[in-house]
Design a protein around this nucleic acid. Structure first.
Lengths: 112, 112
DNA sequence: ACCTGTTCTCTACTATGTAGAAATCATGCC
DNA sequence: GGCATGATTTCTACATAGTAGAGAACAGGT
């Protein structure tokens, strides 16, 4: 697997968030999801930059939703994985699993 | 978890490789391990660059081994995780797990 | 001596990740 | 109808991580 076939870490997280959020996968929501699940307080700019790069690579697609806003609000731009995106997630998962094989978590010695 | 507390993807892989290789964790061996397990054909430069950055961050330490070479060979520089390195691996693992929660792999739709 | 195999170091470049401010838009209120 | 407000997206600039390959160091065999 040569060139640009592998995901960065944050790309990975974002892709997973989009996957699990389904129809609700728009920028702000993705940000919240990652923050809640990983405790990582990312800025919205980081999310959009990543989302756009993923779109440029063909791993996600976006479409502007109806201006459905409850209270105030610009139309949401919602994202979903493409076939290539699904493949990328699956591949990343496999790589990680085989590196993880045989390691028991949590690894002792970190002194928490 | 604000600033530079999170691992890049490749850093993560390298750290896991060092962890599992134990005493055998030197540059070339790490490279081979990653190549074999993930199918990712990384260059040796990438491995050392990453290893050095991890050392700069205090997640691994290195020491030059005895010039023990079987057949030809420069002395190996072998790496091991520090306490902070172990923590980092554990933290990365947790983040990933909570993002993975509820997603069944392989995700269908990738058309392999 | 020199060739060969193994490992490590160096330099330069590209891609990813981070940060925050600013623009856009619909709504509700006055 | 104009203005403050809340929710979202877009823009610009920068810092960090990942990639690539050539070349230096070193030990042994021939």
């Amino acid at each position: 697997m040569p060139k640009g076939e592998s995901l960065g870490e944050f790309e990975h997280l974002v892709l997973l968030a989009v996957l699990r959020l389904g129809v609700d996968a728009y920028g702000m929501r993705v940000r919240r999801e990652i923050a809640e699940r990983t405790g990582r307080d990312v800025t919205i700019g980081a999310v959009y930059a990543t989302l756009e790069r993923l779109e440029a690579k063909g791993l996600v697609k976006s479409q502007i939703g109806d201006s459905t806003a409850e209270r105030g609000g610009r139309a949401k731009r919602s994202f979903h994985l493409t076939g290539a995106g699904v493949e990328a997630v699956n591949r990343a998962q496999e790589s990680l699993l085989s590196m993880l094989e045989g390691i028991a978590f949590p690894v002792p010695g970190g002194g928490q």
